[in-house]
Simulated scan of single mutants.
Amino acid sequence: MLIENLGRARKALLDSLDGLTEDQLYATPAAGGPSIGQLAHHLQASERATAALVLDALQSRSERVEEKDPSFLAACLQQGCSHDHAVSGRFSGAELIRLLEESRFRDLQSVFNETHERVLAERSTERPLFGRVSLKNLLDTIWIHDELHGKQIAAIKQSLGATA
């Protein structure tokens, strides 16, 4: 289920970026906050960081913890998500899509090359937002994060008059 959720959420995110002009990617939302381009870069950087955390945690012994419900993870992400990964540079839509695909197929794939989803559910790590969380749940945060910011991107697109 994890891999299907990751694939579904990322496809929706990539589809939402398709056809946007650079002006639309970097338009400041009327309500303030990050642009679509900054959100996309934030998601890519967050995914890379999460994959690195999981790979690091796989090297140490840890206990099995009860799986957390995705709605709990989403609520924590919504409260604690910061855009400190956003960079001041600008990337074209094609570059953002390439970065997102690269993080998925290089960084995240390296996790699945190391282990199986079953092992990820048996290992855990401590994270400030979630407490002690399984490595599988930590990877769940990637697709949940994509979905949360996907909704934000859809709202920004609508405010810009871009096709949702």
Score class of each variant (00 low, 15 high):
L2E: 04
K11T: 09
S16Q: 13
L17N: 01
D18C: 08
G19N: 04
L20S: 10
T21M: 11
L25S: 04
I36F: 00
Q38R: 13
L39K: 03
L39H: 02
H41S: 06
H42F: 05
H42D: 07
A45G: 04
S46T: 08
E47Y: 09
E47A: 11
T50Y: 00
A51W: 02
L53N: 14
L55D: 04
D56K: 15
D56S: 12
A57S: 15
L58Y: 13
L58C: 05
Q59A: 09
S62H: 04
S62T: 05
E63H: 07
R64Q: 07
E66D: 11
D69E: 10
S71K: 12
F72H: 10
L73P: 00
Q79W: 04
H83Y: 14
D84P: 01
H85Q: 14
V87T: 11
G89N: 15
S92P: 12
E95A: 15
I97G: 01
L99M: 11
L100V: 03
S103Y: 12
R106A: 05
D107F: 11
D107P: 04
L108F: 08
S110F: 05
S110D: 14
T115F: 06
A121N: 01
R123C: 09
T125Y: 12
R127L: 14
L129Y: 06
F130V: 03
R132S: 08
V133D: 01
S134W: 03
L135Y: 01
I142P: 02
I144G: 00
D146N: 14
Q152R: 15
Q152P: 03
Q152L: 15
A155K: 09
S159H: 00
